[in-house]
Every structure is written in structure tokens, then in C-alpha cells.
Design a protein around this nucleic acid. Structure first.
Lengths: 331, 331
DNA sequence: CTGTTAGCGCATTCAC
DNA sequence: GTGAATGCGCTAACAG
């Protein structure tokens, strides 16, 4: 009972010998029991128990060409935005026996390209990226690898393979339209420095028809950066009536700073966030924001990938999950 | 230029043939260039380029017994607490060529045990778990697997292998001592339902010498649950002077609810969080909390693991990173 | 239902 | 400096 298997790891060979069956029968008893008699299954089960056998998925995957792994690339896991997606993805894949390999691109295209190479070299059965794959070289390599790919949190006419997301341009337009409908005319933008946030800004400005004072903060955005952003925006234009923030964390910071300055929300300053974070409905006042179903994105990405792994052809390889401006107390 | 390698993936064999060298020379040119002449390296490099070769780490790892993967088990990635650790771990490992496989135990011991089995079957070069491994069966399997293990965010006299964390009992004691020193005598606890939070509560209560009204919320804790917790606590005892929360998210919710009720912080109600989240210093008033360096935990865990992978013996297998009560405006 | 044969793609011996 | 053989641990094809 001290230590059963100190060095030499026990292999399927040992199990087969112990059970008095051939290697392949032991293999089948474990991974495809319907092909084996109950008596044999039981003998193998006992042998597994006795030897403390733990299968080597790497070896199996080499032959079967299924690694049961999915690579997920996020810009930065500290970006709260993507966590529900990663969580839903992890859960859905786990239920099907797949595990997630995590990679961070740091919003850097060169790094993304290098990381994709590393991931491909691990032969995952699928790859999920947040955002669209930027470099053409990376797109080509992904395609020629033959690995199913899902691009998420954005949409494209010509995805590498599959996509689950929504239009950031439309988000910006929708918020601008909403602000205009409320009668406000003087705006500000507090935004992270990533590309999708830039597209939302573009949609906002284009619907407005003119540019808008903007403060850009580095990712990951946070409450602290939101406070700082409002200070800077009010320096640029103290008469701003409404601010569009690229995340709810930034918006929360803008709220705190406004409160610290004695500004009433929304009478003196209206605020709209983005993402509908878990806390957004519970701030004082509750935060108006753009709801995006990050969890659904993760679930759908998993479904697309798993369908592909089962050899099915996906009929709808590009899914628009949409978004919704959720009006609450800050506007 | 259409598609270079549609089905049959290119192997090192193809590269070697193209370069006019043997398989092993090609292998060395790529992974151990110091053993090969510059001319050969260049020929191989060109062949790699021409064929679009991407190495298969699974195959290499099978022989070399190094998967270049580390498994990380967290209760739930949606728990903000652990994100800096996972991020630091991912970054540090990535710099050394290792990738992280993510798993979620859901604070469930049976699930943790099953997941550890799955992870071991992937033959990672190291395993990081948040918290101590609970089931004895899992501890035994981990030990006999021979895989380096780091338990984090807690300490133990007899870790499975290595540990990086701090004493939750001492955290609870320290906060109780701090509260008592401020002259408060009527307390409440808002806590997540995980085991480490329970130990912090135990430390708090034991230093106090008597039990305390407690509201327990399910993980992951959030601002919304914090608001709810304060409502319940005030029902139990409307005269509570100070509340110890098991996370800063909960504390933020308590603050919001207090504000909504017109309670002044800290005059009417003092609040202490746990974790020192990124927003804690920027709330109104800034949140008193217990600072724990989650990033350092991740970095240290990576260092221990990498040292082991290099075959070095770790002289200090249990590291106490400590903690600090950070006094801010809510107390 | 069970077994035999032949690799998966690469890296570790050992030779030269 | 380079190469030939050998097998990591397992499973896809066939056969019986």
C-alpha cells in the first residue's frame, strides 16, 4: 500500500497480460465495450484496477488521429468579457471528453500567429479563437491544417472555417441611435485599445455623422481605468452628456468617478457599457449596457466543433448571436 | 497557391526527403541545431518552408516522454480570484514552451478526482491544482503517476508534492483581530460556500471566541449575491457593525446594498473583502480587503514545475506567500 | 466476439 | 557531423 507504481508506468500491455487477453481486446474493453463480451470486460476491469492502469491518450491519439483536445485562443484571460465563453466552452467540451488548451495572444498579431503554430503542432481536434484571425499567413496555415476552426465574438463574410459572433459595427450604431433617441447631443467614448472596440466606436461615430471625444485605455480595461477615462474626457469636454464605454468594467469606473465628483447619473451624465457583466444589473443605478450572450457563443462554438469531430457537415457555419441594448438606470 | 496540403499531413519524413538528409538529421536541425552543420540546417529550413511542415508534438512526446503541457485545475474559471494565477501561470509556462490544459472541478471532490484521472491520461509534465487535493484516492494516484504537482492557494503539512499558498485560518484571525482593534463588537459574515472560505470563517470565529451571523452564497460569488447577503444579514441582526466578506465581489455588493439603504460606510457599516481585486482600491469609498498575491502564486507554481521538469530538486517545496490586511475607506 | 499485423510520427540509443 | 535501426503506447484494419 506504500507506492504501487513508482517508476515504470503500467501500460495496456500489462493490463492485457494480467487479464489473459490480447492487447487489442483490452483496448476495446476500455474504449469500445460494446464489441467485447461482458465476461471479458469484467476481467479487464479488474486488471485495470489491480495494476492501477491509466491510459495514455497521447499514444492513442497518435494512431487514431484524435487528440480529444481543443485549443482556445483568447487575447487575455484577464478580460472578463470572454470568461463566460471560455467557461461554457470548457464545460461543453468536457462533457464530450475533450479538454481545452489555453493560449493568450495579447492582442498581438505576430504572437497570435506563433501561438497558432504551436497549437497546430499539438494536433487539437478543433481550434477556437476570439475575434477573427488577422494574419493571412495564419489563415492559410489553419486552412491547410485541416483542423476545424471557429472564430468567435465577431463575424466575417469569409471566415477561416466557421464563426459565432455578432457585428460590432451594428453595436456602435445601435448605441448611437439609442443616445440620439434620448435627446442627447454631446458624447464621449471611453474605450479599450482592441480592434473590435475600435469597430464599435466606428459604428457609433458613423451613425452620429461626426467624430467624438475619445479616451483610449490599454487592455484589460478596469474600474480604475474607467475613473481615469472620465477625468480625461471631462478635461476635453466638460459638457459631455452621455458616454459609451467599451466594457462594463470601464463603465463602472466612470460611474464611480462621476459619483465622486457629485455628478448625478443619468441627469448630469448618462452611461452605457458593453457586455452586460454579472454586476451590471446590480449597480446603483443599474447599468445600461449592450448585452451579448458570451455563454451562448461558447456553447455554439463547442457544438460546431463537436459536430465536425463526429464527421457531420455543419449546415450553418456562420452564426450571428446578435446583441441587445439593455436600458437600465444609467440612461 | 490554392491549398498546399489538403489531406495527407506532411511529416518530418517529407522534410528529410526534400532536404536530402535522413530523418534524424532533419529532426536535429529543428530541435537541436547545435548538433548539425549550418549548411544542413539551412537546407532543412528551406524544406520545412517548402513543405509547410508543422511538427507533431504528440508523436515527439510519446518517445521523449515530455508533453510540454501542464494541467491546471481550478474550481471554476468564473471565480475572479484565480484569474491572475491562471494568467501568470499561462504566461510563465508559455515562455518556456509549455501550454496549459484547463479543467474545472466545480468545487466537487468526485469531479476533481475524475478530472485528475483524465489529466493524468494526457501525461502532462506538471499539474497545478487550486486548493489542496481532497480525496485520498486522487492523492495516491497523483503520487504514483510521478507527475510533479503543485497545490496552490492553500498550505498543508503534507502536500501531495509541492505547494504555494497561505493560511486561510490566519486570514480569518487577522481580520477578526483587526475588527476588534477598531472597537467593533457586532459582526456578520457573507461567504461563498467553498472550503477555504469556510476555514477563513473558522479563523475569524475562533479569534472572536463566539459564533457570528453568517450568510452563505453559492460560487461564483458576485455583486448581486453580495446585495442579497446584506439583506439577509440585516434581517438576522439589524445592529451589525462590520462584515467580513469572502470575496471583493461580495463586498462590492454589500457596499451597493448599504448605499441603496442609505447606510454610511464605514460609520454605519464597516466592510472588509478578500482578494484585493483590481477594482478594490477604486470603489467609493475604497475597499478594505485582504491582499493575496495571486499572480505570485502562479509565477511560483510555474517556477517549481519548470525546475522539476529540468530535473532539478526543489529545495523549498512549500512556499507561504502570506497575505496582508489592506486598510482602506470601508473600515 | 477475439486476435494478428502493422504502423501513427518522432526521438533515443548506438554506430559510423 | 550524420545515419540506421528500434520502439514510445496504443488503435485501425483486416482476419479468424
Amino acid at each position: 500500500m506504500a507506492d504501487s507504481t513508482p517508476r515504470k508506468s503500467v501500460t495496456l500491455h500489462d493490463v492485457a497480460r494480467q487479464a489473459g487477453v490480447s492487447l487489442i481486446t483490452a483496448s476495446r474493453a476500455i474504449s469500445n465495450p460494446s464489441l467485447v463480451s461482458d465476461k471479458t470486460i469484467e476481467r479487464v476491469r479488474q486488471a485495470v484496477e489491480a495494476t492501477g492502469y491509466i491510459p495514455n491518450l497521447l499514444a492513442g491519439g497518435l494512431k487514431s488521429r484524435r487528440s480529444l483536445m481543443v485549443a482556445a485562443l483568447v487575447p487575455n484571460i484577464a478580460v472578463a468579457q470572454f470568461i463566460p465563453t471560455v467557461k461554457a466552452l470548457t464545460d461543453a467540451l468536457d462533457a464530450a471528453g475533450y479538454q481545452l488548451i489555453l493560449g493568450q495572444t495579447g492582442y498581438d498579431h505576430a504572437r497570435e500567429e506563433a501561438l497558432l503554430g504551436t497549437m497546430i503542432s499539438r494536433r487539437p481536434d478543433g481550434i477556437v479563437v476570439t475575434g477573427l484571425v488577422h494574419s493571412q499567413a495564419a489563415r492559410d496555415r489553419l486552412r491547410s491544417s485541416g483542423i476545424p476552426v471557429v472564430e468567435t465574438w465577431d463575424l466575417s463574410d469569409r471566415p477561416v472555417d466557421m464563426a459565432v459572433g455578432f457585428s460590432h459595427l451594428k453595436v456602435g450604431s445601435a448605441v448611437a441611435g439609442y443616445f440620439l433617441g434620448k435627446g442627447w447631443r454631446r458624447f464621449g467614448i471611453a474605450t479599450g485599445d482592441d480592434q473590435r472596440a475600435a469597430v464599435r466606436r466606428e459604428g457609433f461615430v458613423s451613425t452620429l455623422g461626426h467624430d467624438v471625444p475619445t479616451v483610449k485605455v490599454p487592455a484589460p480595461s478596469s474600474l480604475a481605468l474607467g475613473r481615469q477615462a472620465l477625468r480625461q474626457l471631462l478635461e476635453i469636454d466638460p459638457t459631455i452628456e452621455a458616454i459609451f464605454c467599451s466594457s462594463d468594467q470601464l463603465a463602472q469606473g466612470v460611474m464611480e468617478e462621476a459619483r465622486a465628483r457629485g455628478l448625478r447619473i443619468p441627469a448630469d451624465l448618462a452611461i452605457c457599457g458593453f457586455g452586460d457583466a454579472d454586476f451590471a444589473a446590480y449597480t446603483e443605478p443599474p447599468l445600461t449596457t449592450v448585452q451579448v450572450d458570451g455563454e451562448a457563443i461558447g456553447k455554439l462554438a463547442a457544438r460546431l466543433l463537436l459536430d465536425r469531430c463526429r464527421g457531420e457537415t455543419v449546415k450553418e457555419p456562420v452564426i450571428d448571436v446578435g446583441f441587445r441594448v439593455v436600458e437600465r438606470g444609467t440612461t
